[in-house]
Structure formats: C-alpha cells, structure tokens
Design a protein around this nucleic acid. Structure first.
Lengths: 229, 229
DNA sequence: CGGTAGCTTGAAGAGTATCAACCAAGGTGG
DNA sequence: CCACCTTGGTTGATACTCTTCAAGCTACCG
C-alpha cells in the first residue's frame, strides 16, 4: 500500500530503503478528516506526527481575543510535527477533506534514530522550513498588501508545481478569510487586491477559488519587492 | 580553552563527551568582529557554521529597494547555520564587537554524523527555532505596535535570563532602527511606543539602551495579546 | 424559495508611516 | 578647550495604507 502511494516521492518515505519502508508502514495508522476537522490543538501534548497524503490543512495560532494567524497551508507530501517539541506549536485544521498517515512519535523517533537517512531528511526539511519562515517574516514585516498577495500566489504556484500540477492555474482550496489570516490582512483587503491585480492584467480569477497567472514576470517582480507594478 | 568557555553550557558543545569536545576544538577557528562587520551575506554559499561566544549579531534580509527585515538577534551560545542549506538565508552583521567560533561545514557535518547526540541537539534547536518563528509570525501578522514592542521586551528579557542576566533590567545593544526593522515598524513608532509604555508605568528607559521592566505582569499580558493595557 | 455562507464593493475611520524639526551625546579638528 | 559635525533618539504635523463597518451580490442547500 505504501508502494502505491502517490505522495511517496514527495515525502520522507522516499529516503528509506525497502526494509525501512516496511518498518515505517508497520507503524502507520491512516486518518481521514472532513472539512473543518481539527487534527490537534495548539498547546496539546505532541504525542504524534503525521504525513499528509491527500487534501489540504491549515496550521494556525490564536490570540486570546480571537485574532488568528495561519502560519502555513500544507499539501500532500508535507510532514507535520517538525516544529513541535513537547506541545504542538499550532492548531491543525482540515481545509477540505484530507487523509493522513499517523505515527506515534516515540516509535517514529526510534525509527529515525536507527535510520540516519531519515534523520538527515528531517533535518533538511527543518532547514528548508526555517528558511521559508525567514522569507515569510520578511513578507509580513516589510511588504505591502499588493506584494503580499503576489507572494502568496507565486508561493502557491511553486507548491503546485512541486506536485506536478499546473504552475499557472493555481487551485486555492482555502477561503479568502484564510488567505487574509495567512498574510496579516483582512478578507476585504485580499478581495480588493485580487480584483486590482485582475484589472491590471496580472492574474485572472475563476469561480472564486481558481487563480490564473497571466503575467508571471511582473507578478514575480511584485512579489520580490520591486515596487513597480 | 573550550573547557574554560563561558557559553559552553548554553551551546551545542555541552552535548559532547570529552573526546568529541576535543575533536570539535580541533576544528574551531576563532573569529573577532567589530561593530558593523558583516560575517556573511544572504545568498552567499554557506560553507561555514558559527557559534557566537561574545557580543550580539543581527540576521537580516533585504528587499531590492532597501527595505530590511531583521529576522533575529543572536547572543552568546547561539548557533548560526541551521537555516542555511546551500546558501545563507540571511546576512549576519555584528551589532557591537563580537567573537565567534568558526567551523567548516563539511568537517562539522562529518562530526555531527558521528555523534548522534550532536545531531539530536541540532534537530532540537531547529525545532525550537521553528517554534519561535511561528510565534514571530503571529506577532507580525496580528499584533499592534504596542503589543509588538511589549513582545520584544519580554523576549529580550527571556534571552537575558537564559544567560543568567537580570530579567528585569534588559540591555539592548541594538539601535532603535534595528528594533524597528525587527518588529516591522519604524524608528519613530518604536520610540513613541517606548515613551508611551514609560508614561504608563510599564517600563523605564535609561541611557537609551537600557530598559527596566516595571510591571512584568501587565507587560506580559500585553505581549500575549490581551488588549487591555 | 427562503436562508445562509462566502465574496465583493463602498464609505468612513484608525493606526502607523512619512516628512521634518529638534535635542543630546560624542568625536574631531582647529 | 571649544566650535563643529555626525549619529542616534525623540517629538510634532500630516498623509496614506489598510481596517472597520455596512451593504449588496452570488451560489449553494435544505
């Protein structure tokens, strides 16, 4: 069953040999989520790790008065649990229907220690996530609403490309409110900015959730902070 | 010489046994920086890693038009190189005079692979940095200027405490402009906010760079996002 | 068909940025 | 030793981006 898994080449599983693969498969418990289901809450004891195989999750943190920030959207092949030591750093919620592989952390940690290739893979992932995080900080700290939305679209496009999907027609399963809470904006500002980008011919929006990149060069320049539109 | 190092208990070195320690010491090259010296530039090939032993560094990213975001301030005991894979993710610049231990990455990676305790230590650090990064994203995405400054002060206080310094009298070696670029604000806003917090009796400011925490409870509540002042 | 959820659009308002002085401290050179 | 200049910090007035509040629109579902 793992052998037939579509996300295997994208995930940590690919770094294991056949024997390790079999061990990993023995530890795995499949999980299915419906839209809006919470996988775990921020602050809960982090006893499990996960591999997303299908669908989309959002990770978020809340402030006491309800303000929310979505730190990341996860797609098939992504691993959950790197940032979490004792407690989960974020709440994980399904954006649509989703499927995951669940691992008990103790068992997985044990496996990781016996397979240095896995440990290296996880460290590499951690490095990549740290690097991405820095980029996100730059965005939130210095970029304008227009640049943030452009960055978001280019980022989603890059993630889609990784999964062998179209890089120019980007399906965004999340709502405007989710995008807003991920960019540090409001739904209204996201909506307005998307219409502005559309009017400027940089993108097209279909059925609300599908974004077509029409001028990738200009959009990328905008995302990179070259203020010219 | 490592045996007498003041930051040893704070750094990765502490996780090694005596033999490993000796190996590490053989790889180490000491580096001294003056205020404003650049240790490495964002985008440069990441051939070396560092351990900060004295002073303070700032890590930052730039946008093409000069906008800057300081992702982090580093203090003695901190390790540089976790987020960097092929290239350095940020530029590293000395805030004041500083001293570091320099390691060639190839040699260090080799050592790490032979000492699983080191590998675990680095993975743990990466986890902690990821977790901190999420917190920072929440701050930049959702918090007000007042909350951001409060968060900054509490964060600096916590770091000082880790180094066995006073948690209530916080020495901030960086300039207002640096704080501003770290919080996604301007120097003027930082300055105004500090005077407001002072007038409200939450803090005191001495000689520009020394911040005294007068009401830790209220300040913490503010930092945590309980809007009440 | 009415109801609801999500998205868009409009007008007013708040928070922070920008522009511009001003001040204090420290270093330099005459 | 003092005038001068530079650097960093504070304070004030104004401007602008984004938020807030509010209404309207569309599509989907019972």
């Amino acid at each position: 069953m793992c052998a037939a898994c579509g996300v295997r080449p994208l995930s940590m599983c690919a770094s294991l040999d056949d024997a390790g693969q079999a061990e990993l498969e023995a530890l795995l418990v499949p999980v299915a989520l419906m839209s809006g289901d919470i996988l775990f809450d921020e602050g809960a004891t982090a006893t499990q790790s996960f591999n997303l195989t299908e669908g989309c999750l959002k990770l978020y943190k809340l402030l006491p008065d309800g303000r929310r920030f979505i730190t990341d959207f996860l797609y098939p092949g992504d691993f959950l649990g790197l940032a979490d030591q004792q407690a989960y750093a974020c709440t994980a919620e399904a954006v649509g229907a989703a499927r995951l592989c669940k691992f008990e952390r103790k068992a997985l940690d044990n496996l990781v220690q016996r397979h240095s290739c896995l440990e290296r893979h996880l460290l590499d992932r951690a490095r990549a996530e740290l690097s991405d995080g820095r980029e996100q900080l730059l965005m939130l700290g210095q970029k304008t609403a227009r640049e943030r939305v452009a960055s978001f679209i280019m980022g989603q496009s890059a993630k889609a490309k990784q999964r062998n999907l179209s890089a120019t027609t980007v399906e965004t399963p999340m709502r405007r409110a989710d995008i807003a809470d991920h960019l540090g904006l409001t739904t209204e500002t996201v909506s307005r900015t998307l219409t502005n980008l559309t009017n400027d011919g940089l993108i097209g929006v279909e059925a609300g959730r599908r974004i077509i990149i029409r001028d990738a060069v200009t959009l990328a320049a905008l995302a990179a902070g070259h203020e010219a539109a």
